[in-house]
Amino acid sequence: MWDYSDKVKDYFLHPRNVGEIKDADAIGEVGAIACGDALRLYLKVDKKNGNRIVDAKFKTFGCGSAIASASALTEMVIGKTLDEVEKITNQDIADFLGGLPPEKMHCSVMGREALEAAIANFRGTKVEPTEEGAIVCRCFGVTDQKIERVVKENRLTTIEQVTNYCKAGGGCKSCHPDIQKIIDKVWEKEAKPVAAPAKPKKMSNLRKMHLIQETIEREIRPVLMMDGGDVELVDVEGDTVYISFRGSCAECVGSKVTLKSTVEAKLREFVTEELAVEEVNQ
């Protein structure tokens, strides 16, 4: 069961501003029933008063947090000008609700998108998200631009986070390499985010040793042990990792070549690109 905050529960059980505005000045519509959630946001804007939002209503198809996020959004925008609400981020919506479970952050993103769509609708600058940029995730119709944006705005560093925030990669997973490329591109251009993954360019020998050992324990040994094999870390000299195969792996000459490259690939993925693996007999 999701660990929803009391405020999320309250806004779900007693949603504020449900409904439609018949003579709305702006309507923002995002999501689709096929994707599991959809939101239609209605705004009544007082043009004589600096484009101030005098009323907001919503209709949502979706889970508890989707309904709560939409309702929270309406409360956040009423009484403010369009210029003011333009600055609202998905994190603001999540914060207003006392936080959302990580897997549900996409609900707050949907709120922010509906608001943007409504503002664009008001200004006559139609937002067509699917026409901006190329579709990366076909299962949920998410474009590279949208992924890039959630990555930047929320300082995301993993594919899993991207999925939590905008659903991309949550279906068949075939787009995962493309999402990874977008994440890499974003953080290559800018300075690395604070919570960067554990792959710093420069690392002490001690840290490197530690990461190598950790990767072998977590990523490599369990797989080998499944087939009665094993691997042992013998030594590390500079960027050369010396390993020794055990169990069925040690006897199997044919698979050693493949195994060596698998171990190398894993270590390069999780520690540093510079690593090379050498096998020693012990």
Partner: peptide, 11 residues
């Protein structure tokens, strides 16, 4: 069997 209950995003 909804997507949201599983956290998998798909029903």
């Amino acid at each position: 069997g909804s997507a949201c209950t599983s956290g998998s995003l798909e029903p």
